[in-house]
């Protein structure tokens, strides 16, 4: 069931996920924006506004402010957005207790996890997004795990100081009891600057067909394939923090419901690191009683599927 509408105000709006924004500015029309807001109101959708790094005309802001919404913006442009997309150059200026998205490469994460330490001290939540998942190799398993454990220790140090910082790839799994995926195409769609709906921003920038518009509604063919119950590898998986990115799935396996090996392994390394984090925290004191993350003997659930 549709719950969220993401509105990209411009082709150059900040990228907060596994895609690259357009290089050229292309602002959404005022009419399209109005139609989208009206659609969201009538369908009871939560609206996420994704901003470019320039000031929009006043009438755009008035329309946007006509509905409850969450703002995504580049940290170098708007410090007051609800979710900031940041890079290390911005970090000193990020307000305390912000929610921050940081896009990083796998190799950079393995080699320099300490880069994130300053953020852990000041943000409420850090979402680390690996923008090059396909470069992951099985020989990186150990290095990746070490980097996760390094961050784990840093997070626990913050906990000891009563700073309960959240880091998506490590702390989300501690509290989740079921899948908490992106669910684009099932629970959310994106309105692009061309006035059309797409499964998510990546589908728009990737040249995929639109799936409707505010006047005609959302019409996703084979929409069941975006649901968890139609994802054979994922529906019995317990790496609950996984984005289950349908765009990455399509890129890697040609099917939106099937994750590639790399996405699975990375998320299971995160899951297993969360388990180690849980054990370490409990050495200090009681924490999430009754919560268990079971031992597993695989990193890719594809391996355990029985035919």
């Amino acid at each position: 069931m549709l719950k969220y509408l993401v509105i990209l105000l411009d082709d150059s709006a900040v990228s907060y996920c596994h895609y690259e924004s357009g290089k050229e500015r292309k602002l959404i029309s005022l009419e399209a924006l109005k139609s989208a807001i009206l659609f969201a109101m009538k369908e009871n959708l939560n609206v996420h506004i994704v901003w470019p790094d320039y000031e929009l005309p006043k009438d755009y802001k008035e329309i946007i402010n006509g509905i409850d919404h969450i703002n995504f913006a580049d940290a170098s442009f708007a410090h007051d957005a609800d979710i900031l997309v940041a890079n290390p150059l911005d970090w000193d200026n990020i307000p305390e207790k912000s929610v921050v998205v940081v896009k990083t490469g796998i190799r950079d994460f393995i080699e320099k996890p300490e880069v994130f330490l300053p953020l852990l001290k000041r943000v409420a939540r850090l979402n680390i997004l690996f923008e090059d998942i396909s470069v992951f190799k099985d020989e990186m398993v150990t290095g990746f795990s070490y980097a996760l454990d390094f961050l784990t220790d840093a997070i626990i140090e913050q906990y000891k100081k009563q700073n309960k910082v959240q880091v998506n790839i490590l702390t989300d799994r501690l509290i989740l009891d079921q899948m908490n995926n992106c669910n684009a195409g099932d629970e959310s769609v994106t309105l692009a600057p061309d006035g059309q709906f797409y499964v998510c921003p990546a589908f728009y920038f990737g040249g995929e067909k639109s799936v409707g518009n505010p006047n005609e509604g959302v019409h996703i063919k084979n929409s069941q394939l975006f649901r968890l119950d139609h994802a054979p590898i994922c529906r019995n998986c317990d790496a609950y923090q996984c984005n289950r990115c349908v765009w990455l799935n399509k890129q890697q396996t040609l099917e939106v419901n099937t994750p590639g090996h790399e996405q699975c392994v990375i998320c299971h390394l995160e899951r297993n690191a969360s388990k180690r984090m849980l054990d370490k925290i409990r050495e200090i004191g009681e924490f999430l009683p009754g919560k268990e993350i079971p031992d597993i003997d695989y990193l890719d659930p594809f391996e355990k599927i029985e035919k």
Binding site: P232, I233, Q252, T253, L254, E255, N257, T258, P259, G260, H261, E262, F302, I305, K307
Partner: peptide, 11 residues
């Protein structure tokens, strides 16, 4: 082998 995964998990 990623492109084989959908075929090998079809039910």
């Amino acid at each position: 082998k990623n492109k084989l995964r959908p075929f090998l998990t079809l039910d």
